[in-house]
Amino acid sequence: MLETRSLSMHFGGVVAVNRVDFSLRENELRCLIGPNGAGKSTFFKCLTAQLRPTSGEVVIRDFNVSGSESHQVARMGVGIKTQVPNLFDGLDVEENIWLSASQSASLKRSRVITSEVIERLQLGDVRKSQLGSLAHGQRQLVELGMVLAGEPWLVILDEPTAGMTQEEVIRTAEIIREINKSATMIVVEHDMQFIRMIARKVTVFHQGQILLEGDMDEVSADARVREVYLGHRKTS
């Protein structure tokens, strides 16, 4: 359903993503992990057409994403959450979610979706609060709500738990599993504990390439992965 064919992204002389072949089946929940600078975020930006790859292509449901604009990708029914919270700080929670819902749904239907999403994420108390005044974890939650409100069939999340408390992480994991019932997902993450909560299949990035792909147990048992994550054991 989603496929990249020898996808590469160069910044000047730096190769951030190097000939990556990646594929995703319908209803899968895939985690992308890897140390800092492994190319996860660049890969994410190529998937969502925020960056135009140097070579290779990204195909989502027979549609070649590589040459298009990111709003076109989103309009296909792809829900996207970026790494830094990307919200409308001057607007209230309701408006934020409504703006997402009303992109594809009718005005009447989007009001219904908005209140459903707010209820589902238990954001009722802050529905009229400005986004800028909310705590970090709540903001992340609202952004998940915006993804939900678009009723996507493919969801791509970049570090959804960054800066969250333990409790919020658990709640987010629940929400992600629930979204996965109706949508295919890619989650880019750092937090191994969180990945353990949600992941079935994991793709490990290292130096712009796929190092390994497999079950969580398989991956965490792998010596190469440990080395990449924990640094050069041999020298220490």
Binding site: T48, Q50, E69, S70, H71, Q72, A74, R75, I80, T82, N86, L87, F88, D89, G90, L91, E95, W98, L99, S100, S102, Q103, S104, L107, M146, G150
Partner: peptide, 24 residues
């Protein structure tokens, strides 16, 4: 109107509006 509210969201955050599927 819906148009105006989308414009306000562009003022607030262009990237986000675009990632919601609006052609800013």
């Amino acid at each position: 109107s819906h148009f105006g509210r989308v414009c306000v969201s562009i003022r607030e955050n262009e990237v986000r509006t675009e990632l919601l599927g609006y052609d800013i």
